[in-house]
Design a protein around this nucleic acid. Sequence first.
DNA 1: CAAACGTGGGA
DNA 2: TTCCCAAGTTT
Length: 346
Amino acid sequence: MYKIETFSHNLLDWFHNNKRSMPWRETNDPYKIWLSEVMLQQTQVVTVKGYYNRFIERFPTMTSLVAADEDEVLKYWEGLGYYSRVRNFQAGVREVQEQYGGVVPKDGDAFLSLKGVGPYTRGAVMSIAYNLKYPAVDGNVYRVFSRLDDDATDIAKSTARKHFEAKVMAVMPDAAGDFNEALMELGATVCTPKNPICMLCPVQDHCEAFAEGTVLQRPVKVKKLKRKSYRYKVLLIVNDQGELLIVQRPTSGLLGGMWQFPVVDEEASLADIEELLHMNLYQEAELFHTVTHKFTHLDWLLDVYLYRTTDSATGDYHFIAREEKENYTFPVSMTKIYEHYLKTGS
DNA sequence: CAAACGTGGGA
DNA sequence: TTCCCAAGTTT
């Protein structure tokens, strides 16, 4: 843990002696702070500047925005993205007009309840406009505190926000607004994702990741895996002794080395299958069963078909009796199919 | 709580 | 090309 006083002091001192990223937003007007913070959600400062200036010129006050036509307001957002933001913002401002006499409430809970206002926006507006002590945790703050504490918390998890809010509050000085801005400014200009300039960092002495040499490994952010879905045919092939045909999966890769009933592409025809297995097959039913199985990173959708044969197994395929099933390792998906076969099959 | 929600820029 | 990131919130 770093010494709180020197940490906050060093950061604020640096903030006051450096150029700001947003000189065009030098104001304490809660309406303007609010608007800019909404525009800045998931959007870079350089992108926001022009939109902010045009918007404020056209809708300089809450009164002007409340009276404006929604379609015209939307037009001023065109190209910024995340368009629900502007609809929510106007709704929120109208709410302030009606419920709070046109004054942005100096109460975090009340402000948070407004349309489009989440934990970050609450903290930013309450602290910057009113200097109230609320955390404003954005991507910069995740990164800065992950590094300061060499904290490997996965910032992709939704529970991470409260974790970092607590860290911010633990070192929150009286100058709440400047402090929140300073943290973000530090993250945006010095403690950057790829090429952090640690030599210029005002709180380098407090940074555990710098001391440990793990700066570039922080923050930890587990990638969202794009789950893909795969559909296969599973073949339950029974010989005249009531045995089932199985085959072993390749040693490496998914379910490596485990046994399964033959699996073929969903498009495979009966002729394809007979050629693959070197057997003549007699199909029992159109579709015997369907099983879905979720892995960490992909889904299986298995259509199970039941066949009979009088031929013997060739190659890597084996017929096994029911009592032999326990001698082989099967994935859960295959066991599900087997158990269904025992219940409803012959 | 994962997914959806926009767009632009950099590596 | 593809992926990551950008002063997040909603459902």
